[in-house]
Design a protein around this nucleic acid. Structure first.
Lengths: 147, 147
DNA sequence: ATGCGTGCAAACCTTTTGCAGTCAT
DNA sequence: ATGACTGCAAAAGGTTTGCACGCAT
């Protein structure tokens, strides 16, 4: 966690940007929240304790997180951009998304990753990024349906 | 192709909806275009020959295509919803997307699909849908970069 | 005739930006 | 001091909808 904070501060000073109270607060709340938050959800969370922080600041700070590599943007098809922490050491992962209860489960599978590389190689493609999302019903929702 | 038209007409009459000139024209242009079109792109294409057809009609008709299963919605991260034909017999496929020239290459890999099923099973998940997108540089753009 | 479909324009929603004042360096 | 940052409000960009009229059944 502190590693991430350090990384963010370094990024700021490297770029000639400034470390401000707002940015610290937003980073704290973002890390605390953990999950896959939309800009608005994070803004609402923050507003409770810090009503003076505006939406635009949250929005711009999340962009900053994504630029400096401590967060990743996602689009799960609900019309909102969501952000997720990228822990420095953790592996890339993909998502199972329950279309019913909106739960998001993370998983990683190196074999799938490797096959992606193979596909790319076959097409002379250089992968910079990828996303794999499986939409469906989670265990709980499946059970609810069948009962 | 005609199979798709039939399917659309059946869907309309099954649902008590009407077959109109506009819908026929939009379907024709959509099938002719082939690629991964946004609502706006299709609208612009159609407007050239049929200036009387409105954006909303194109929009609503594409939704209809997607409801009846002859088209699929995609979000490749450029902020626009794109539609793609689903030929009845063809297999599901995924996408390689060149972030530079915006080219979209389709591929399919049953082994990856199978592994996705395994992952889902491991989590008690029932997959209804999925998407896999590999973003990066296509062969041509890679060469341009290195030269 | 009936009621779905169409075209237009306006509403919506999320993301982005301009600006004047504020703050970190 | 200086230039980046913030908060507000407004703009933008895409999607969706209301309504009065038109058309397929």
């Amino acid at each position: 966690m502190d590693r991430i904070r350090d990384r963010f501060r370094s990024y700021l000073s490297d770029q000639g940007l400034k470390s401000t109270q707002q940015r610290e607060i937003i980073l704290d709340e973002f890390l605390k929240a953990g999950a896959h938050l939309s800009t608005e959800e994070l803004y609402l969370k923050i507003r409770k304790k810090h009503p003076h922080i505006g939406y635009a600041t949250v929005y711009r700070t999340l962009k900053l997180f994504s630029e400096c590599g401590i967060a990743e943007e996602h689009n799960f098809g609900d019309g909102q951009t969501r952000y997720e922490t990228v822990a420095g050491e953790s592996h890339h992962h993909d998502h199972l998304i329950c279309t019913e209860c909106k739960r998001i489960i993370e998983f990683e599978d190196p074999r799938i990753e490797q096959m992606q590389d193979e596909v790319a190689a076959r097409h002379g493609f250089k992968i910079l990024n990828h996303r794999l999302e499986l939409y469906g019903l989670c265990d709980d929702c499946r059970k609810k349906h069948s009962s």
